[in-house]
Each structure stands twice: as structure tokens, then as C-alpha cells.
Amino acid sequence: MSLATFDLSPLRRADRWHPAELAFWLLPVAAYLVFPDNLVLLTQIAITALFCLSLDLILGYAGIVSLGHAAFFGFGAYAAGLLAANGIGDPLAGLAVAALASAALGFVTSFLVLRGSDLTRLMVTLGIAMMLYEVANKLTDLTGGVDGLQGIEMTPLLGRFSFDLYGKTAYWYAVAVLFLLFWAARRLVHSPFGLSLKGIRLNVARMPAIGAPVNARLSAIYTIGAAYAGIAGALLAQTTQFVALDVLSFNRSAELMLILVLGGSGSLYGAVIGTIVFMSAHHVLSDMNPEYWQFWLGALLVLVVLFARDGVMGSVRRLSHAAGGRRKGER
């Protein structure tokens, strides 16, 4: 093969939108039409999907394990909640403040998290989230402690769409934010920065030898992931007009990890699909069997980890590969 005949298109086309992706983003519209009475649940799914996307950026792409990602979610929720409870009820201003607050927390803590091995990282992230939980618990004057933060009043979105009782505005608001941030994340993972994160995950020891400042890159993505999580937390505070202490709980961090593994870490759609599968299963199973639903979720997780590597998205990839292979074989 020569330079003149070399085909660059596999690299050039890597970031093109696949028709299946476009179809995927019609799902929120379909869900709205099919389940008009479940908008609250659907809004939660969109918010959790965004939260999961933020973990996917740092874990799935950069390989930073975290058992305390709720720290940023909760920090953003309280930031947006406190802002709105103190008279600044503009939703987008709330998102911006939450994003900045969580990003700042992410940036500062990144220096603690980035030193050490995976086990150290698990413990440091866990510890930071625990400390934050206790601080929020203690500062009852500010956060309401275990009673939660109340008195959040939102002004209409863009000055036009007020948050209605049925949750229509809340739903479209959450979906729109999810889509925009998904789009931005998609650009990021296909950029040179995203490529260098993959390089770091695949072989961190080699990266400095090609001149890449590993810690700076990890610090940057950790900060971005924290901002994403903060925005997800803010969406929850704004759409439910309440912040419960459990936004910072260990359970939320652990469940998020579970969702990401279920969907397939290292794939942006894995994060979203994992959330849809998990929360739907949660909803259906807990309806059927309020006491033992966690048993079935646990069973599902074990099966996925053992038999469907890389979660739902991994299976999809393998199936489409197999189908593609067969098609080629027929020709």
C-alpha cells in the first residue's frame, strides 16, 4: 500500500453519527408519548443517565475508579438547591453554579485521588464522599440535615416554561440537558484529549514516554466528570424542589458503579442504556416484589459481569460483529 492509495476514512469517520444513534435519541419522545403518566420516573432516568455518563468519563474512559462519585452529585444538588432557596430560582443559573462548584471540588480533590493505586483511589473517593455526607448532616442550618433542604422555588425555564404539576417541563428540561451534555461528551471522547485518555487507561506507563502529562489529563477529566455529576445533582434538586441527604450517600455511588458496569463502561451509550435498564428493572421488580427486588438486581449484576463482558453495550457490539462477519461470509 502506498501513501497515495491509503484510505483515511476509518479514522476520519470515527465520530460520524450512526443511524442507530439518531434512532436512539427518538426514545425520549417515544417514552413521553407511551408513558405520559410516568414522567417523574422518566425524568429520574434522564438525570441518573447524566450522572452515570459523568462516571463513565472518568472510569470508562480514563480508568479512574471511584466509590464516592455521589460527592459531586450531592454537592451540585445542594449548590443549586441553596441558590434557589435563597431567591435565585433561575434553572440555568442554578446549573451553572452547580457545575462550577462541583468542578472546583473535583479539581481540588483530583490531586488526592490521582496519587496511588486503584485501591487507594477507591478509598480516597469513598472517604471524601463520607466526609461530605457528614458535613451536610451536621450543617442543619444550611442543608436541613436529615430533614432535607426545603423551600426551593424555581422560576420558569428561559423565563417561559414554568415547572408544571405533571412534570412535563421538568422532563424535557432534563432530557435536553442530558442530550446536550451527551453531545459534548461525545465530541470529547473523539478528540485528541479523549484519545489520550484511552491511552492512559490502556497503558498509563507508556504515556509519559510519548510526552503526555498524565496527571494533568486525569485531573482535567476528573474535573469535567465532577461538573457533569454536579449538573445532574442540580437537575434533581430543581425538578423535585427538594434535596435529601441521600444525594451524598455511599449507596448512590455504589449503585452508579453497578449501573455503569451493567450498561458497559467505556461506552457513552452504555452509561445511558445501563441507566434505562437498571431503573426500569428497579421499577418493575420493586412493584412485583417490594421486599426482594434487590435480590434480582444482584443476580442480574452477577450474570452480566460473569457472562456479558462490558455489559449491555459489549453484548451489542459482539452481536453486531457476529452479524457483520456472517454477512461478509455470505458474499
Binding site: R12, L188, S191, A212
Partner: peptide
């Protein structure tokens, strides 16, 4: 090569 050219941290335009 990205790293040598100093574009390794560009996060918006695709690699290609």
C-alpha cells in the same frame, strides 16, 4: 504525534 505538536489536550474537534 498529537503530543509532540501540543494538540493532545484539544477536546472539541475530532482526532481526524
Amino acid at each position: 504525534v498529537n503530543e509532540r505538536l501540543g494538540v493532545g489536550a484539544r477536546f472539541w474537534k475530532p482526532v481526524g
